[in-house]
Simulated scan of single mutants.
Amino acid sequence: MKYQKAQELLQKYLNGNCTEDERQLLEQWYQQHQASPLPVISEADKNRQLKEIYASLPIPTRSITRRLWLKIAAAVILLATAGLFIVRYTHKSVAVNQTMLTTADVAPGGNRATLKLANGQTIDLDNEKTGIQLTNNHVVYTDGTNLRTSSSKNSISAPEDYQTLTTPRGGQYQLILSDGTKVWLNAASTIKYPAHFNGIDRSVEIDGEVYFAVNSTNPLYARKPFYVKTNGFVVMVMGTEFNISSYLDEKNTCVTLVKGSVKVGTLDRADNLANLSLLHPGQKSIMHDQHISIQKANVEQDISWKNGVFTFQNTDIQEVMRQLSRWYNVKVVFEGPPMHAEINGIIYRDMSLKKVVEVLKHLDINLYTTGNELVVVNK
């Protein structure tokens, strides 16, 4: 069974949505692989995981025979230990409370951001909110409540100049611009934008990783192209959805197009556009040193962070650790000779770091946490 098919069927099974044919397919797949020994997992660990999986199954799914659920649960463990892992077995999200974590654990990232106004004032945004929006010359939270500072109970008027929204390591936040464009910021990311798009175009600047759903339905802005500038490159769009990753600690700036069309190009010192290339849905541009190449994108993997998931498919362990480092706000240290390994699987971003470490250990990755460091040992 192909990785993606197995992943989809297992997730449907854990959600209680499998058809009878799909259950039979999973059982047949398990029968084909049951002769293969599970890689280095003790009987006690296997039994513990079987109990955890069974306890987390939705009530309708528990009504199936014990024989079948044992087979499917074992298949999940086989996938996990083989590197095709789904690391959370519950069928719904569970919030992690910082006070419930042990001293050796690290909570996952969450809604954290600061907003810098044109007058220099910086506001720590509410962690209980998911985002902010510009509306009627004011900045408000997306649920309609006003922003408040520690020294004032008044709502904050949006200035006519640029504002800057920044997420720290371990943070994420959302933004709705004055034209209705929706923006999602990943950890350690920044977007600089005007309170109003009064010119002939709509232009913003970003660092880090940001997902855009550009509004093309507002008649006031329908004919104004939307530009995203980052690290010497530019993305030009009208109405579309795309992800742009432009972290300074990554080799490339990447744009993944989900729908619509965009043009990607370079910027010279005079801010002039050059080397424009057209992207179609499902394509990805890779930009480095003023060079642009286009290839087929793995859209699910590239935008999964926006949906609360890390998706790894043949992802180099160095890149995996950089993503975990940004989300959990820890320093990753590699000990021993250079490590070369590829990771396949799904990690839910609401899991604590301790749980993530436990899962990765099943892939024969030797790692541990100490203080604010995640140490990966290559024996």
Rank of each mutant, 00 (worst) to 15 (best):
Y3D: 14
C18Q: 00
E20W: 03
E20L: 10
D21G: 03
Q24H: 07
E27M: 06
Q28S: 14
Y54L: 08
S56Q: 04
S56V: 02
L57P: 12
W69F: 14
A80H: 03
T103R: 01
A113G: 06
T122P: 05
T122H: 06
D124E: 09
N127S: 13
G131W: 00
N136L: 10
V140D: 05
R148D: 02
T149C: 10
N154Q: 11
I156N: 08
A158S: 13
L165H: 08
Q174A: 12
L185S: 11
Y193H: 05
P194H: 05
I200L: 10
V204T: 09
Y211N: 05
Y211T: 01
A213R: 02
V214K: 09
Y221L: 04
K224A: 04
F226A: 00
Y227K: 01
V228I: 15
V235Q: 07
N243M: 05
K251A: 15
N252P: 08
T253C: 14
V258G: 07
G265I: 06
L273K: 03
S277V: 15
H280N: 10
G282K: 11
I286L: 09
D289I: 08
V299W: 00
K306M: 08
T315Y: 01
D316H: 12
I317N: 02
R326E: 05
K331S: 11
V333A: 04
D350G: 07
E358G: 12
E358N: 12
V359P: 00
H362K: 14
L363D: 10
I365D: 04
T369C: 15
